[in-house]
Design a binder for these strands. Structure first.
Length: 305
DNA sequence: AAGTGACTCAACCGCGACGAC
DNA sequence: GGTCGTCGCGGTTGAGTCACT
């Protein structure tokens, strides 16, 4: 069920029938003031929307009073943020958004508000629901623990390796959005190998945000002569096997990578840095991201997230 | 048509952080 | 330093919907 189909009770343009009289119990504060709780009626939505678009929300606790609502400020704030805000994006999550959510969750954990801040038009609540209802399931189906972003411990060939130094504690991404000028120094050791995979050499990725708020993934290419970047970055790219088969070492792989991703940069150590956000618009984002995710998670080529 | 279980998602709840006094 | 009010966050709940029998 898409959010679009269920959010029909009100939209600023369209008032659609909605059954409104719900009193499901009250906050203590709401009880004291005999405030309403539960689902919002179209009338309430309209009052709140009109008030905030005219006057802004200011102090949330005073909003219900000035908007003529029998609600607590907290409830008004939630309704505005999750439903009435005009900049909200509606409908299903795109593949690109889904991939980004997974990547950000790997870095940030359940910090939904920070994840939401990287997805314009999406709310933390929406992303949290999407994660819990869809992505978790898909990752499990692909043999990935959604909490650790790794295969379950018993199947993890790297289980004896030190656990990724807490991505959350160490990553710049974990800093609350106060400073977007994070460097790219923190690594996300999402690297593992599965013998039954078509892809048997998994490059290691690091991600972070640049000063300009673009997301960058650094792919540390393996020191392996057999590495062919397009085993990983597949999708929408015409891979010429003869050109990649001659690759010897990560340096040439990186060069190949850059020849297909001209906005990427070669790094001094032979790796390549991909700037997500700098790519030409005509690139199929989903295809690129799919490749990235498969890469990060070491999925079988044919598996889908 | 009715019953049931799975699923989705809007909204609630409780808590911590923060600032003002 | 203590108290209070406000805000924002993450976890949880439960009504509504759908699919299946």
């Amino acid at each position: 069920m898409s959010s679009a189909t269920t959010q029909a009770s009100f939209c600023p343009i369209n008032l659609i029938a909605h059954v409104g009289e719900h009193f499901m119990g009250r906050h203590s504060c709401c009880y004291k003031q005999k405030l309403r709780k539960g689902l919002w009626s179209p009338d309430e939505d309209e009052k709140l929307f009109n008030h905030i678009t005219k006057h802004g929300h200011g102090c949330w606790s005073s909003v219900p009073k000035f908007a003529g609502l029998q609600r607590c400020g907290k409830s008004c704030r939630l309704r505005w943020i999750n439903y009435l805000r005009p900049d909200l994006k509606r409908g299903m999550f795109s593949e690109e958004e889904e991939g980004l959510i997974i990547e950000l969750h790997a870095a940030l954990g359940n910090r939904w508000s920070q994840i939401a801040s990287r997805l314009p038009g999406r709310t933390d609540n929406e992303i949290k629901n999407f994660w819990n209802s869809c992505i978790k399931k898909k990752l499990k189906q692909n043999g990935i623990d959604p909490d650790t972003h790794k295969p379950p411990k018993e199947d993890n060939p790297h289980k004896d390796e030190p656990v990724a130094p807490s991505i959350i504690e160490n990553s710049d991404l974990s800093n609350s959005g106060t400073s977007e000028s994070q460097s790219l120094s923190q690594s996300l050791p999402l690297r593992f190998e599965q013998s039954d995979m078509a892809l048997n050499v998994i490059p290691e990725f690091s991600t972070g945000y640049n000063n300009d708020n673009t997301l960058t993934s650094i792919m540390n290419l393996p020191q392996d002569a057999s590495f062919q970047p397009f085993q990983y970055l597949e999708g929408g790219i015409d891979v010429n096997p003869s050109s990649s088969s001659g690759s010897s070492g990560n340096s040439s792989s990186a060069m190949q990578l850059q020849s297909y991703f001209p906005w990427s940069e070669l790094l001094p150590d032979g790796g390549a840095e991909i700037h997500i956000g700098d790519e030409p618009e005509d690139l199929k984002w989903s295809e690129y991201l799919n490749g990235t995710i498969r890469c990060m998670y070491g999925m079988h080529k044919d598996s889908s997230i």
